[in-house]
Design a protein around this nucleic acid. Structure first.
Length: 267
DNA sequence: CTCCTGGATA
DNA sequence: TATCCGGGAG
């Protein structure tokens, strides 16, 4: 039961995220379909369980979890999940909590100061909104703590729309299976976003999203285990990779993609 | 050491 | 468009 609040007229005029003007050729469309099937089959057996993926998790927990997951490993948030939501069970709980208390709870997983500010601002907004999110991406991305990624998560989980959870992991999978991205920053690469949106265009977009994220975490990291990957037979990286018996992977010019920060050490 | 389901800021 | 936030796991 999707309540479409007739926003057809003032449709997302020009949000920070461009609409999908990207057109793909037939081979790419076929490959995407093939990937979807393989991913779902793989996810059926190897998908990971997390609290925020549970049926028990409401939109509140799902969205807050997305904020907790930013630049943070899922396993870390997995261990942290119970302790956090035992203290904060609603937007109102966060809104009414003292800043320093929220910070102290967030401290173990890092980014605690920024996250406290962001969650506070978002909670206040959500209390004022009586708990319901706007239904357009443009309106969502205005809200505090909500950027392109979390906006997609809200549209995906709260409205069941086929939006991609395009993070650095999904980007890496798409780079390898399809074409390398143009831009270093995935947030401003229309081609990459269009590709991600194409992949999750299915009956169960949430499952596809999770399948890709889990695949990236399990087999498609910096040192990928292509032998066990369900996409290996049509993945550029895996195909180039199988040329030799050595398990050591030399280099695919991937060094230019990941940002190399000098990270000056000061003594 | 790098990386982790990014977003706000200048 | 580049930088910062942050503790923890690998």
């Amino acid at each position: 039961m999707v309540a479409r609040a007739g926003s057809s007229r003032a449709s997302t005029r020009r949000s920070r995220t461009s609409p999908p003007p990207v057109v793909f050729d037939r081979p790419t469309l076929d490959k995407a379909r093939w990937c979807r099937r393989r991913l779902l089959a793989w996810y059926e057996q190897h998908g990971r369980q997390f609290p925020w993926r549970s049926q028990d998790a409401g939109v509140f927990q799902q969205v807050v979890a997305e904020v907790l997951l930013q630049r943070t490993q899922a396993s870390t948030v997995g261990r942290f999940f119970g302790a956090f939501f035992e203290q904060f069970r609603s937007w109102d709980d966060i809104d009414s909590a003292p800043d320093e208390f929220l910070e102290s709870i967030l401290r173990p997983i890092g980014l605690w100061r920024r996250r406290a500010i962001a969650l506070k601002a978002l909670a206040a907004e959500m209390v004022a909104r009586r708990g319901d999110f706007p239904d357009s991406r443009g309106e969502l991305e205005i809200l505090p703590a909500i950027g392109q990624y979390v906006a997609s998560a809200v549209l995906l989980f709260a409205q069941g729309r086929p939006e991609p959870l395009l993070d650095s992991n999904m980007a890496r999978v798409l780079d390898r299976v399809f074409e390398p991205r143009r831009l270093v920053d995935i947030r401003y690469d229309p081609r990459l976003q269009g590709l991600a949106r194409l992949l999750v265009r299915s009956r169960e977009p949430a499952r596809i999203n999770r399948a890709i994220l889990d695949l990236a975490a399990r087999h498609c990291g910096r040192s990928p285990t292509c032998e066990e990957c369900p996409l290996r037979t049509r993945c550029n990286f895996a195909l180039h990779n199988r040329s030799g018996p050595s398990s050591r992977v030399p280099q695919i010019n991937e060094a230019a993609l990941g940002r190399r920060r000098p990270q000056g050490v000061k003594d």
